[in-house]
């Protein structure tokens, strides 16, 4: 019994390590770039039947300082911060870092119509609605 438990423990440990490795490989990159003085904002994407909806958290940003660039497959968000964020000893870099903008490019899951994209900004949260290109038809059930 003891031996069986040990074997399962080993499997669990291997599984945990693999999960972590995969996780770090796909998501482990930093959310900042000191050379470009930009931070990556928190952004999430969801899909409905008709559109792709992207929401972005943009603290210290005013509506007029947001730039959106949309192609059928990609959305780029750039926003200037009202206040420059300065870190005296930034993490592993161990020197002063200054950040002035948010920047993020998202690969869209389906083609969208750039001309019909709508965006609104409320209390520092940006919501972008991107209509999907594929046309949908209603089917009558008989």
């Amino acid at each position: 019994m003891w031996r069986r438990r040990r074997i399962f423990d080993e499997f669990e440990a291997i599984e945990r390590e693999l999960d972590q490795l995969i996780d770090e490989f796909f998501h482990g990159r930093p959310m900042w770039n000191p050379q470009l003085e930009c931070l990556e904002p928190l952004a999430y994407m969801q899909e409905t039947d008709e559109r792709v909806i992207v929401t972005v958290d943009l603290p210290y940003v005013r509506k007029e300082d947001i730039k959106l660039d949309v192609t059928p497959n990609e959305l780029t968000i750039e926003a200037k911060m009202q206040k420059h964020v300065v870190y005296d000893r930034w993490g592993t870099v161990q020197r002063q870092c200054r950040f002035k903008t948010f920047h993020k490019t998202l690969r869209l899951p389906v083609e969208v119509v750039p001309e019909l994209v709508k965006a609104k900004f409320k209390e520092g949260y940006l919501t972008i609605e991107l209509p999907k290109k594929a046309r949908r038809f209603k089917v009558k059930v008989e």
């Binding site: 996780d23 959310m31 904002p41 958290d57 603290p59 210290y60």
Partner: peptide, 18 residues
Amino acid sequence: QAEEIRLKMREVMHRTYR
């Protein structure tokens, strides 16, 4: 301090989300 907190906690939020 809401905006400062939102900015400083981006990465821990990102990891927590995962």
